[in-house]
Design a protein around this nucleic acid. Structure first.
Length: 276
DNA sequence: AGACGTACCTGACCGC
DNA sequence: TGCGGTCAGGTACGTC
């Protein structure tokens, strides 16, 4: 699930319950996530105040009143939830009790995500964070940056946009949707994109992400806002998971039926009429 | 270096 | 109802 809009939705949902509050109790269910939970995480988190919630790509970062920061990746199936008091659920790996009486839970059935605690020095050299490409909604993410990034890249543009080193936060859903909006076929080699196409791609990505954040992300199966509500962007998908359905731009034209292909083992949805 | 296949893990869904 | 196969939003690693 969780791509940039979902992580941003979770961050915004959690912030009012967490920022300024003190962690009083830490319960860990199991340590063997994609990154092992540090054995001393409970000790280092207890009595720490959460100063600020941040996000970088698909990573959520909690800045504390200590030299540590919490790094959270939701993987494929991760969720965060806040409640006044709810019974522990299956796959609740980390549970925090706050001074407000609220409980914050990290739940991840597939354990592709992680809940890590790193020092300030380790944060800047973190293998994910230190090599991550620009934030797509930042001024740094421009057509000229992308032109350089695509030089010499023969891989399909779909795969390149999934590469977090090129641009942060895009996953399968938002890459498919952005390429549709930009009118670019997903199997095009990166280095064959024209200037005009790159000029369309940047604002297309930004528009798709911005709209998705506005409506709380996409809920296919797992994604929930911290209050348990679903996101709503899946209602607005143009191509993703819409194989055989009409393209929204040309609903009556049979040459504009959404197709599904597989690229590097992952589903790609696109309109063969609109995307060339 | 870049591209590609595979592995990690659990749950949902489909056909039989 | 149960079983096996397939698929899923992501990243890391080995190989060429």
């Amino acid at each position: 699930m969780p791509e940039l809009p979902e992580v941003e939705t979770v961050r915004r949902g959690l912030a009012p319950y967490l920022e300024g509050h003190v962690i009083e109790r830490v319960t860990i269910d199991r340590h063997d996530l994609r990154r092992p939970i540090p054995f001393d995480l409970g000790q280092r988190l207890t009595q720490r105040r959460i100063e600020r919630l941040d996000r970088r790509g698909k990573l959520m970062i909690w800045h504390l009143d200590s030299a540590d920061a919490v790094l959270i990746h939701l993987g494929m199936s991760g969720r965060m939830a806040v409640s006044s008091a709810a019974p522990a659920q299956k796959h609740d790996h980390v549970r925090l009790g706050l001074d407000s009486g609220d409980h914050v839970v990290f739940n991840d059935p597939r354990r592709f995500g992680f809940f890590d605690l790193v020092s300030a020095e380790a944060l800047v050299s973190d293998p994910l964070l230190s090599t991550m490409g620009p934030e797509p909604l930042d001024d740094m993410f421009t057509a000229s940056y992308m032109l350089t990034a695509l030089q010499g890249r023969t891989a399909p543009i779909k795969n390149i946009l999934l590469d977090q080193h090129v641009v942060a936060g895009l996953g399968n859903i938002y890459v498919c949707e952005s390429l549709f909006k930009a009118g670019i076929a997903p199997d095009r080699s990166g280095n064959t994109l024209s200037n005009a196409e790159i000029q369309r791609l940047i604002p297309a990505i930004q528009a798709v992400l911005t709209r998705a954040i506005t409506v709380g992300g996409s809920t296919l199966r797992d994604h929930r806002k911290p209050d348990g509500e679903t996101g709503y962007f899946q209602i607005e998908f143009s191509v993703y998971d819409r194989e055989g359905q009409p393209c929204p731009n040309h609903p009556t034209n049979p040459a504009h039926k959404i197709l599904r292909t597989v690229q590097s083992g992952r589903s790609t949805y696109y309109c063969p009429g609109c995307q060339t």
